[in-house]
Computed example of a mutant assay.
Amino acid sequence: MATVILVRHGRTTANASGTLAGRLPGVRLDDVGTEQARRTGERLAVVPLAGIVSSPLERCKQTAKALLDARDRLAEPTLRISSEKGISECDYGEWQGRPLRELAKEPLWKVVQSQPSAAAFPGGESMATMQARSVAAVRRHDAAIEAEHGPHAVWVAVSHGDIIKSVLADALGMHLDLFQRINVDPASVSIIRYTGTRPYVLASNTHGGDLSWLKPPPAKKTRSRKGTGQGTGTRATTTASDDAPVGGGAGPSVHP
């Protein structure tokens, strides 16, 4: 039951000008986006992280670096940022670099809005392919982090709006044709916990609020057994159920 925090990159110069950046090089955070990323880094600094994985595009790497900088200021161990092509921006092909106001006049625009599962960008990829590879990448990293760090591990994936929307849609059991109902703002935080039975969407498109409830629970001490020569030790608790609490449950416990 590892937990992934999905962070969209901060606002970019292309976002501010209404341009579809896609995978064009040189698209960086603007001043607003830099401040957004800084605030998100401070918000996440209270959560012990097992890893940070980023899209290889510059705006995501800048955002991931801001998350690291916030942790360094609090004297926490520095994490290494891993690059993952599977959560890179959608390949919009011939659409990238064009103003959104022009693209809205294209016949394909209505397909992207109402039936994205049928949308394929000229010279690029389809939205169905985008979702398949991004979900596969997130689930692969999640399984690897849980195997290495345990079921209470928390990690961050820094990616793009449509990528995060498609991953959330998959976790919610929504058809891709409904994913435009999900909103993911720059530098927002969404949270998914994958389990053996189903994914749980714990948060979506959040901009503020305490995240200390994501801290792993303290290790439990084990009592020594008579006649074994074994002393008191510690073990991580793994008793959390994969089942949904009927009635809603009591919510997360905060571990100061």
Results as ranks from 00 to 15, higher is better:
Val47Cys: 10
His160Ser: 03
Ala45Val: 05
Ala66Arg: 13
Gly93Val: 07
Gln180Ser: 14
Gly173Arg: 06
Thr3Phe: 01
Lys226Leu: 13
Val167Asp: 00
Ala153Met: 14
Leu79Ala: 09
Asp177Ser: 11
Val32Trp: 02
Val27Asp: 03
Thr78Ile: 02
Arg235Pro: 02
Gly97Ser: 11
Pro252Phe: 10
Thr232Leu: 08
Arg101Met: 01
Gly196Val: 05
Ala136Trp: 07
Thr232Tyr: 11
Arg98Val: 04
Ala118Cys: 01
Gly86Thr: 06
Thr78Tyr: 00
Ala119His: 08
Arg39Cys: 02
His175Asp: 15
Ala118Ile: 00
Arg28Ile: 04
Ser83Val: 11
Glu89Gln: 12
Ala171Pro: 02
Ala21Trp: 07
Ser224Met: 10
Arg133Thr: 07
Asp185Ala: 15
Glu125Ser: 09
Ser241Ala: 12
Ala50Ile: 05
Cys60Tyr: 06
Arg101Gly: 00
Leu74Trp: 11
Asp210His: 12
Gly233Trp: 04
Leu211Lys: 12
His255Met: 11
Ala153Cys: 14
Val4Ser: 08
Lys61Tyr: 05
Ala137Asn: 05
Val138Gln: 00
Val156Tyr: 02
Pro252Ala: 00
Gln115Ile: 03
Val138His: 01
Val7Glu: 01
Ala250Phe: 11
Ala120Pro: 02
Val254Ala: 07
Thr237Lys: 10
Trp109Gly: 04
Gln96Ala: 12
Ser204Gly: 03
Gln113Ile: 06
Arg28Leu: 13
Leu211Pro: 15
